[in-house]
């Protein structure tokens, strides 16, 4: 099983809008071998965003989608140079984006449990602070030591 997060998937981004951010992050996940079909995953992420934007408060966006385009469950974390709007609601500004790629295979219940744990951890301030402001090595260690079952 591939690790949930590798160092190349923690990136600093200087972009103008959400669409650009999502495209670049999908590229990263593809380059790191997490995807079977970039097009299919991108489509599923955008469709999920369209249902309702994945703003979770605290200047964090959490785009995700279960998709046949995903090979192995993975994360991409982007820390933005400048805040961007995440939805039509002007209050929903994002500075950190955590993209989750999950495949559609029902047998991969373990992966969904890992993501459930990550989602729960994001509600804790200390965890969020490290993801948003910690150095890459610390973020990597945090994710790979706390998000296990």
């Amino acid at each position: 099983m591939k690790t949930l997060l590798n160092k190349a998937c923690i990136i600093d981004l200087n972009i103008k809008d959400k669409n650009e951010a999502i495209h670049q992050m999908v590229d990263v996940l593809e380059n790191e071998g997490y995807l079977i079909s970039k097009e299919s995953y991108l489509k599923d992420v955008l469709e999920r965003e369209a249902i309702f934007a994945t703003f979770i408060g605290h200047h964090i966006g959490l785009p995700h989608g279960r998709s046949d385009g995903v090979d192995s469950t993975g994360l991409c974390i982007a820390r933005l140079k400048n805040e961007i709007c995440w939805s039509n609601n002007e209050d929903e500004k994002v500075k950190t984006i955590i993209m989750i790629a999950v495949n559609n295979d029902n047998e991969n219940n373990v992966h969904l449990q890992i993501l459930a744990k990550l989602s729960r951890m994001l509600m804790h301030e200390q965890f969020r602070n490290l993801i948003q402001h910690g150095d890459k090595a610390s973020v990597l260690e945090l994710i790979n030591t706390t998000i296990i079952i």
Partner: peptide, 17 residues
Amino acid sequence: CPSGVAHTYMAAEALQL
């Protein structure tokens, strides 16, 4: 929630906290 990946669990945790 629609994809059952994240918000389901974040909402549950937020209420518990």
